[in-house]
Simulated scan of single mutants.
Amino acid sequence: MGKTSGQNNIIITGATGMVGEGVLMQCLNSPEIDGILVINRKPCAYTHPKLKEIIHSDFFNFSQIENQLSGYNACFFCLGITSVGVDSDTYYKMTYTLTMHVAETLSKLNDRMTFCYVSGGGTNANGRLKWAQVKGKTENELMKLPFAQVFNFRPGFIKPLPGQKYAHKFYKYINWLFPIGRGIYPSGFCTMGELANAMINTLSHKGERMILEGKAIIALSKE
């Protein structure tokens, strides 16, 4: 893993979901990360000397907690919902509107912040699928905000870390497919450790705005 410089104090959202939890676990164990703030609607059930948690129910209004959100040099944004069974207006609000509100708030409070957004494989602002369009619009608008860096991650199948509490139950039945899928289609398969390490390694980059698909995520995780 590439060595970063200075203090790395980061914010993680979505720590009670599979991706956010995996990123949190990896960051807690990483010597590259000095401090972590997680913002959740409910407790994440993790404790650690470098971990601070804010329980906040309304992600569309951060005015009550803004005074606690400055002094961070990265946000690993792992919060999101599936489009399955969700009407288009709700999906747009919970994907685009919510993400942009959080990002706009953080960009005002932290002028040298790196913003990492977990989007998804197949994202395309000009695609036919509604969810792909919404994710693509979110990616495009994040690129315009005054962050020091923006990285949009588009993972496909993600293999959870051992011991994750919030991994989807079906993963334990299909994890055996991972080495087969990785061999046949490496761009569509990464591990949670690779995704998290790639995010951590963005902190050694300077002034970049990138979209990262599967192979690029894996490559960045090895820097």
Rank of each mutant, 00 (worst) to 15 (best):
S30N: 12
E141W: 02
S57V: 05
C116R: 03
E223A: 10
F178T: 08
I180P: 09
C116H: 07
A196Y: 03
N40E: 06
K172F: 04
I81P: 04
R182Y: 15
M113A: 07
P49Q: 12
A196C: 06
G183C: 12
Y173I: 06
S57P: 01
E139N: 12
I65A: 00
T82C: 09
F151A: 15
L220S: 00
I218S: 10
G163P: 00
N8A: 11
L161R: 05
W131C: 13
Y96N: 08
T16W: 08
M113L: 10
P155L: 14
G181A: 10
A103G: 03
G127W: 07
T4M: 08
S187V: 08
E53Q: 07
A167G: 09
P155F: 15
K130Y: 15
S5M: 13
N29F: 04
K165M: 13
N40K: 01
R112H: 15
M25K: 11
F77W: 03
M100G: 02
F77E: 01
S88D: 14
N73R: 14
K172Y: 04
E66R: 03
G6T: 08
F59N: 01
Y166G: 04
F153R: 11
L69M: 07
L37Q: 05
M143V: 05
R41A: 10
F157P: 08
P155Q: 15
N61M: 03
A196W: 00
D87Q: 13
F178H: 10
K130S: 15
I55M: 03
P162R: 06
E141P: 02
T99N: 00
S107A: 14
N73G: 14
L109S: 04
H48Q: 08
L37K: 05
E32S: 13
M94C: 08
L220T: 00
M199H: 04
G120V: 05
K206R: 14
G183H: 10
G6L: 10
Q26F: 07
I184G: 13
K93S: 06
M210N: 07
K159D: 14
F153N: 12
V134P: 02
D34M: 07
K172A: 06
T90H: 08
N67P: 01
T90Y: 10
E141K: 12
T95S: 05
E21Y: 05
K93N: 04
K52L: 05
M94Q: 14
I33C: 11
R41K: 13
T138R: 03
C27Y: 02
A148L: 14
L98Y: 01
A15K: 02
F115K: 02
R209A: 09
H56I: 04
P186N: 08
V19K: 01
Y46T: 10
G22Q: 01
N110Q: 06
